[in-house]
């Protein structure tokens, strides 16, 4: 192991991972090319579009601007961590029902930003949704449907919470 390689230990979608990474690799590269979770998209690669948004702890961060080694000991959640096609997460359900995706490229990042918002604020106003989602760009300009999907997901998750609680 040279000075430009280090062992990275982190948790991805609940699974502990330990891998050898180059010190200059970004988290997006490790997620996509080493762990093969390609749901996290890299579009601009300079922190300006939000397509690579993942959760680190409970916070939305940009995987393309985060050095992989900064995730040491952290818990990372990607779109793969939500749920499978047969058993979608309420945010994913809301995305389908409200037509949150057109081309769909921004959806994984959008959904992770939505999850970060709903974790800290289960009942956001439209203004709060707009502020929380302001770091994610949709080139199809599908914003009205995305706002509706986030608000609908919030309702679903509150109802689910009420049922389970």
């Amino acid at each position: 192991m040279s000075a430009s390689e280090k062992i990275l230990s982190l948790t991805v979608n609940g699974e502990p991972k330990r891998l050898l990474v180059k010190t200059h690799w970004m988290l997006s590269r490790v997620l996509r090319e080493e762990i093969h979770h390609t749901g996290t998209k890299e579009a601009c690669g300079e922190g300006a579009c939000g397509a690579c948004t993942v959760l680190m702890g409970e916070k939305a961060v940009l995987a393309c601007m985060t050095l992989a080694l900064e995730a040491e000991g952290k818990s990372v959640e990607t779109i793969e961590g939500l749920m499978s096609a047969k058993n979608p997460h309420p945010i994913q359900e809301a995305w389908m029902e409200e037509f949150g995706a057109q081309c769909g490229f921004c959806s994984p990042g959008m959904i992770m930003s939505a999850k970060a918002l709903l974790l800290r604020n289960p009942d956001p106003t439209l203004g709060e949704v707009r502020e929380a989602m302001a770091g994610n760009i949709c080139v199809c300009s599908n914003y009205e449907h995305i706002e509706a999907a986030v608000l609908s997901a919030a309702r679903k998750m509150r109802e689910d919470g009420a049922q389970n609680g």
């Binding site: 948004t53 939305a60 940009l62 929380a132 302001a134 770091g135």
Partner: peptide
């Protein structure tokens, strides 16, 4: 400044 994701770090 920037976006929520960038402000978080």
């Amino acid at each position: 400044t920037a976006s929520p994701q960038l402000r978080n770090v």
